[in-house]
Amino acid sequence: MIALDDIDRAFLRALSEDATLGAGELGRRFGLSQPAAWRRVKRLEEGGVIAGRRLVLDRQALGFGVTVFLGIKLATKGRISFEDFERAVQAIPEVQVVQHVLGRFDYRLRVGARDIADFERVLRRRIMTLPGVGQIEANVMLSEERRPGPLG
């Protein structure tokens, strides 16, 4: 873990809001030269603090109006069933996130679908046929608000 100062934290807040900011803009915002800002960002990347930058797509604009969170409890547990389930679930394009969790369920999935009928098709034809699936609980997302992260 690398030590972070106030400018590092300010850079991280700014980049978390707009990952396209370049070193020149960061330097102007926080009173540093472009090379000094670039070195800081490079240090944060090499230190693993910045693990990457990503493009955030508007799922609604792409025609995916429904997001459902699924809790899945496997019927049989063991190394083989976990591996088989994980391998199979990663092949489903509608599954956006797979989380292996502790608690009531073994896995938490984020599934994107065009509408409820499309989600039902994905659920019946793809998810319910996965190896080892026992219990499934679905929660349809009504709205999503972005909350500031630990640096916000």
Rank of each mutant, 00 (worst) to 15 (best):
G71E: 04
D118L: 06
R54W: 10
L62P: 09
F119A: 11
M128E: 15
E46V: 02
G48M: 12
R54L: 10
Q96S: 14
A51Y: 00
R121A: 14
A10K: 07
I116F: 01
D8S: 08
L15Q: 04
P93R: 11
G27C: 02
S81Y: 10
G52N: 08
V98Y: 03
D84E: 15
D118M: 03
P35L: 05
I72T: 08
E94M: 07
I50D: 00
A19P: 04
L55P: 00
G112C: 13
V98W: 04
G47F: 02
I116T: 13
Y107P: 14
V89Q: 03
R124N: 12
V68E: 07
T76M: 07
Q60I: 11
I50K: 01
L109N: 05
A19L: 02
A117G: 05
A10R: 05
E94S: 11
D6Y: 11
V49Y: 01
L102R: 05
R54Y: 14
A88G: 04
G71A: 01
E45Y: 00
G22I: 00
A23I: 01
R13Y: 02
T76Q: 15
S33L: 10
R28Y: 00
L26G: 13
R108E: 15
L26M: 09
P93W: 10
R28H: 08
I116E: 09
D58W: 12
L70N: 02
I92A: 07
G65D: 05
G103V: 05
K73P: 04
I80Y: 13
L70P: 00
I7E: 03
P93G: 04
R125C: 00
K77W: 10
R79N: 09
I92N: 11
V68T: 08
M128S: 13
L32I: 10
S16I: 00
V97P: 06
A19Y: 03
L55M: 06
Q60H: 15
E17F: 04
S33V: 09
L74Q: 06
L12E: 00
V97G: 06
L26S: 08
Q96T: 07
E83R: 12
R53M: 04
L102K: 08
L123H: 13
T20I: 06
L70A: 03
R39N: 14
R110Q: 14
L123Y: 14
K42H: 10
F119W: 01
E86S: 12
R125F: 11
I116D: 12
R9N: 03
A10E: 04
H100K: 15
R87Q: 10
Q60V: 10
E46S: 10
L70Q: 03
R126G: 05
G52E: 02
V89G: 05
V66E: 15
V98A: 06
K73R: 02
R114A: 08
V41M: 13
L102Q: 11
V66W: 03
G22N: 15
R40F: 04
F85A: 07
R54K: 09
G63P: 03
A36P: 03
R87N: 04
E45H: 01
V98D: 11
Q90P: 06
R40V: 03
L15P: 09
E94L: 06
A117Q: 13
D115A: 08
L102S: 09
F85V: 02
G31K: 02
L26Q: 01
Y107V: 14
D118C: 10
R29P: 11
L21N: 11
V56R: 13
L74G: 04
V66L: 15
W38Q: 12
R121G: 07
L62V: 05
I72N: 03
